[in-house]
């Protein structure tokens, strides 16, 4: 474990906590894409299949359970909670997320490290996570005013994978030049997708104005 990865995990955890707090405190999920949240549940389920078969550390197991639990509860709130589900922007959150999942799965069948169920599904989760934010970014462009919590949520979500990129650079130089193209390239794509959001988020923060994404 290095400081970059720990910072990344904490940033990721914080983003999810902020989203849960927003939903529980305001009893509203306005501006949040259910499609993206569902994709994250799939990402965690397919990535943590070895949760009960491989014990790495207390930290690793705990964080996996926290990520699975929180992401599933967010989807539950948005789908079934009587008050929250009324605030879901159903008619604006129209991104066909299956168009994202299916190519990722096909790509995982083609490009992986070894052809086993666990490894192919793990690879699928890496590819899927890279594009899972797209429905959320599209929804942000459609919703006129973005509330601060939602903006902070998306910013921290993008920042966590950027910190993971730094972690991979650090590990490359400190762990006999271990090369891991699949997470590296996917992480690069994932972080790049946030580029224009980062630009507008930082601009709105500097000029102390409301966050607005150009349509």
């Amino acid at each position: 474990m290095n400081v970059f990865r720990l910072a990344g995990d904490m940033t990721h955890l914080l983003s999810i906590i902020i989203l849960l707090l927003k939903i529980r405190a305001t009893k509203s999920c306005t501006g949040i894409s259910l499609k993206t949240q569902e994709l994250y549940v799939i990402v965690f389920l397919t990535r943590y299949l070895d949760l009960f078969t491989k014990y790495i550390s207390f930290y690793n197991t705990t964080m996996k359970l926290v990520f699975l639990g929180t992401s599933i509860s967010i989807v539950w709130y948005m789908r079934y909670h009587k008050v929250v589900k009324q605030t879901y922007n159903k008619d604006q959150d129209t991104f066909r997320h299956y168009f994202l999942a299916i190519p990722c799965f096909l790509l995982a069948l083609l490009i992986h490290h070894e052809f086993t169920v666990i490894e192919v599904l793990w690879t699928f989760s890496i590819y899927l996570e890279a594009v899972a934010i797209l429905p959320q970014l599209v929804l942000l462009q459609r919703s006129r005013n973005i509330d601060n919590l939602t903006g902070n949520y998306v910013f921290l979500l993008g920042a966590y994978r950027a910190l993971y990129l730094v972690n991979w650079v650090y590990r490359y130089f400190t762990e006999n030049h271990l090369v891991r193209w699949i997470p590296w390239l996917s992480g690069l794509v994932q972080t790049t997708l946030y580029a224009d959001f980062f630009y507008y988020y930082i601009k709105s923060w500097k000029n102390n104005e409301k966050l607005q994404l150009p349509a």
């Binding site: 990721h12 790495i56 590990r171 762990e175 271990l178 090369v179 891991r180 997470p183």
Partner: peptide, 10 residues
């Protein structure tokens, strides 16, 4: 062994 190193990440 290469891939195992990755699996210690979240």
């Amino acid at each position: 062994v290469q891939q195992d190193a990755v699996k210690d990440e979240l």
